[in-house]
């Protein structure tokens, strides 16, 4: 099956009906997208599908045919970090950082819709993403800073 990931037309084998997460990680070596729970409850595997953040672990790969998938690896342009990534780097928000790709993808989607969210709007939009190291205040701060940059 043809799949468009990060602007590239790629081919994946869907005979075993893999999830989008499995296809990205095992067939395309795009391992930035993480497994966390397998039921769309933690946000570690979020990718943008036509701009909407979806949990790749419960999205069958076959359902993204003809759509545009953006993963964490697709956010940089010409080696320049996305403003959200830049803000996370500057705020130094993460500990183990395993949740980082899903957090950043979800934050990018939030800022596309609402470029200058309040902290409460950030909390509401990010609640589906778990940071088990619990540096939540730092993550809110990073997204808030990114919003200020983009506004």
């Amino acid at each position: 099956m043809k799949i468009n990931v990060n602007g590239k037309e790629l081919t994946i084998d869907v005979t075993a009906n893999p999830s989008l997460l499995e296809a990205l990680r095992e067939q395309l070596d795009l391992t930035g997208t993480k497994y966390g729970c397998g039921e769309g409850a933690c946000g570690a595997c979020k990718v943008l599908v036509n701009g909407t953040p979806l949990p790749a672990c419960i999205t069958p790969a076959v359902t993204v045919q003809g759509k545009k998938v953006i993963t964490i690896e697709g956010l940089e342009t010409n080696g320049e970090l996305h403003p959200v990534q830049q803000a996370f780097l500057e705020v130094d928000a993460f500990q183990c950082a395993y949740c980082a790709p899903g957090m950043i993808i979800n934050a990018v989607a939030l800022l596309e819709k609402n470029s200058n969210p309040t902290k409460q709007e950030i909390v509401d939009a990010m609640n589906g993403n778990i940071c088990r190291c619990c540096t939540y205040p730092q993550i809110v701060e990073a997204i808030y800073q990114a919003g200020k940059q983009l506004a």
Partner: peptide, 15 residues
């Protein structure tokens, strides 16, 4: 700041 922080926020770090 976290050493190699950039690798973690770009998905490049290999766990």
């Amino acid at each position: 700041p976290k050493i190699n922080g950039r690798d973690f926020i770009t998905g490049r770090h290999k766990y």
